[in-house]
Design a protein around this nucleic acid. Structure first.
Length: 246
DNA sequence: AAACTCGACAACCGCCTGTGC
DNA sequence: CGCACAGGCGGTTGTCGAGTT
């Protein structure tokens, strides 16, 4: 007997979420917190798969999410982390407050990848593309983060004269240097100390400043508000524009 | 103005991992 | 140890708006 599907395939709605569905899901999580995702759709009155609910929450409805394009610093951090971690988007996302793995993955595939290729850098190996002709010159192929690995591949971004792909895109010229390990902060962020430090788990980032913006003390923002749900307390859900942009 | 193309991103799918029994 | 299950992850697809022809 095969494994049961994560949800009943029949009667399960697919496709873009409606504002009504979003509202139901948010209301449910506000009331009950994140419990068993499999049970969420039934309890929340949604005809959705539990997985779909979890994804919708983590990628779109979570109150601590940043919206909009990644800024220059974030983009550079993504590149550096990708060089170190590979396609481990969730690990990368954990280092970018308010960003989701899906968002970073999309941004990588639609923006960064193209920029790197234009710069002559292989987005997979982070090695110069012309080196790829020589298999021995691609030491980062199938790069794996083993926890002890500290080295970042050659800083090809510093060698590239410009990070610009077009006039509107981010540029990394002298005025916005590629982040290097010389920068103490970036050095720490990219270090294994940081990477392994659970106290910096940004998956549900609770940034004190952000909570202050919502009139909450920093202590209120942690603990019971682990998921940032506290922010919804003063928000009229009906006023939230949670409708899918599509 | 209509048809077509492309880019961005939300969402789905299938596999993997961790956990409890 | 093996099995079943839920949750998580990464790859891929689908959808829609903007831009172009």
């Amino acid at each position: 007997m095969g494994r049961q599907p994560c949800c009943d395939k029949f009667g399960v709605k697919k496709g873009p979420w409606t504002a009504e569905e979003d509202k139901k899901l948010v209301n449910f999580i506000l009331t009950h917190g994140q419990c068993c995702w499999r049970a969420v759709p039934k309890l929340a009155g949604l005809r959705r798969c539990g997985k779909s609910c979890r994804l919708r929450w983590t990628n779109y409805l979570r109150p601590d999410l940043k919206r909009g394009l990644l800024n220059e610093a974030e983009e550079q951090l993504v590149i550096d982390l990708h060089a170190r971690l590979g396609n481990r988007w969730s690990k990368i996302a954990a280092r970018l407050p308010g960003r989701t793995d899906n968002e970073i993955k999309n941004h990588w595939n639609t923006h960064i990848k193209k920029k790197l290729i234009k710069m002559g850098i292989d987005p997979v190996t982070h090695e110069p593309l012309h080196k790829q002709a020589n298999p021995e010159a691609a030491p980062c192929k199938n790069i794996k983060y083993d926890g002890d690995q500290q080295e970042i591949p050659n800083n090809n971004y510093a060698q590239a004269s410009s990070f610009s792909s077009d006039s509107s895109s981010t540029t990394l010229t002298e005025s916005s240097e590629p982040v290097s390990d010389d920068d103490p902060l970036m050095s720490y962020i990219l270090s294994n100390t940081f990477l392994e430090d659970s106290t910096w788990d940004f998956h549900f980032p609770v940034m004190r400043e952000e909570y202050c913006e919502f009139g909450m003390s920093s202590s209120e923002g942690i603990g019971d508000d682990y998921f940032g749900l506290g922010r919804f307390n003063d928000v009229d859900l009906s006023a939230l524009d949670m409708s899918n942009k599509h």
